[in-house]
Nucleic acid binder design. Structure first.
Lengths: 145, 145
DNA sequence: CCGTATCCATTCCGATACTG
DNA sequence: CAGTATCGGAATGGATACGG
């Protein structure tokens, strides 16, 4: 039998993250959750995804502890857990990269703004422990034996 | 005919990013590229991916302008473009999230270290334009009409 | 060593119909 | 409104064989 490669036991954290949220819809669902979506129908209308797919993805995100369900009226809501909230830098990083490299200068796009002053956020910076900016070449991966 | 949903024309930068790198292998290939992989075989051994899949993914990343090929000896190397290098915060964000939430405390994982002092990097922080830390609830998405 | 081509199984996804 | 059930087409992914 042919088994699809899984990364939920990889020793690389990037691989495990990809295993949890590295598919087409999961990250967009999480984005919508940050954006305020809570109900099944909200996600569905916002994403235009088939209901069976949405159902499966929500279940997977709940299984991974990224979303949780909370009873609310007749049905329930899907809320971000702390683990899900912690994906905020990932979403912001993807957003800023997309803004910079997947739009032509004149092409408009939605924006994530500071609620207080309605200004855009600072570009994410990777910093060393001493606070200095770090480029990819300044780093080294320490693999385990 | 049934067409798979594409996000390459979405007005949300997150969606476009997902369209470019939001599949299983692409992000891991980019991670390996940051980690120094250049040749086809290096990626292949590191990822354990089938060669036809790797071939297709590399082509896609080249098409998206994230990798470029450079002649080298008999064949060529795959190098990150500036657009690809700019994915660094995305990879770091995924790595830090994975470290925090997908490993048990006693479970070891590979680490990304500062080359100079061999210390881990700072956790990524989302900052407002004035430099203050920003939580998801402090933001608002400004959609276009 | 670097890929491409082929074959096949599995998974993903979209559309729709249906139930509570 | 919130899902579940089912179907079919498409894409993904793994193994392997083959050519440069």
């Amino acid at each position: 039998m042919v088994e699809r490669t899984r990364f939920d036991e990889a020793d690389c954290p990037v691989a495990r993250s990809v295993d949890a949220v590295g598919d087409w819809w999961s990250l967009l669902i999480v984005r919508d959750a940050f954006d305020g979506s809570r109900r099944f129908g909200e996600f569905q209308r916002s994403l235009g995804v088939a209901k069976n797919i949405l159902s499966a993805r929500l279940k997977s995100l709940v299984d991974h502890g990224i979303l949780r369900t909370k009873p609310a009226g007749a049905h329930h809501e899907y809320l971000l857990t702390p683990k899900g909230e912690a994906l905020f830098p990932v979403i912001v990083a993807l957003r800023q990269w997309g803004e910079s490299f997947t739009f032509t200068p004149d092409e408009p796009h939605s924006q994530l703004l500071d609620r207080r002053n309605h200004k855009p956020l600072r570009p994410l910076k990777v910093l060393a422990s001493d606070g200095r900016p770090v480029k990819p070449a300044d780093t080294v991966v320490h693999k385990l034996t």
